[in-house]
């Protein structure tokens, strides 16, 4: 086992225990890459908590932790912004015009995942567009 895999052993073990699917652990240029799909948002949060304990404030620059929360079309997701409303945009990008907003805590429906960053969503009010996935928590 490499030194990096040793350093982040607790994290890799936790990922296996949490049932992360498509789990991949690889190394390139002294950076460990861990990726996979978490069954729940809580599983992802737990891994990030462990990462924060091993490397406080994520300063070491030796890990890329790419854990996506598995969610399929039709899944309900909660808007988990800090406090403000979430912008719904015409296309996937902050350069795209805003077509609507979803309130903090509102439940929206996932239409499809354009990519890891942008999801096409629909609000109960009927507004459809792209929202930043970091602020959506699948229920």
């Amino acid at each position: 086992m490499s030194a990096l895999q040793d350093k982040y052993k607790q994290l890799i073990d936790a990922a296996k225990a949490a049932g992360i699917s498509n789990l991949q652990v690889s190394e390139q240029g002294n950076v460990l890459h861990i990726s996979g799909d978490a069954p729940t948002g809580a599983a992802k949060d737990q891994l990030w908590e462990i990462y924060g304990k091993i490397d406080p404030d994520y300063r070491a620059g030796d890990l890329i932790l790419d854990i996506e929360v598995a969610a399929t079309a039709g899944t309900k997701a909660k808007v988990t912004t800090d406090s403000t409303a979430l912008n719904i945009r015409k296309g996937p990008g902050t350069d795209q015009p805003i077509v609507g907003k979803a309130a903090h805590g509102e439940i929206v429906t996932l239409q499809n995942k354009t990519n890891e960053q942008w999801w096409l969503i629909k609000t109960d009010g009927g507004v459809e567009g792209y929202a930043y996935a970091q602020y959506l928590s699948p229920q």
Partner: peptide
């Protein structure tokens, strides 16, 4: 501090080679 993890999660999902924080 409360925003750090949110930002890092977003950046980690972009598939960079490395993040220098």
């Amino acid at each position: 501090r409360k925003d750090l993890t949110t930002l890092m999660q977003s950046l980690n999902s972009l598939h960079p080679a490395k993040i220098n924080n």
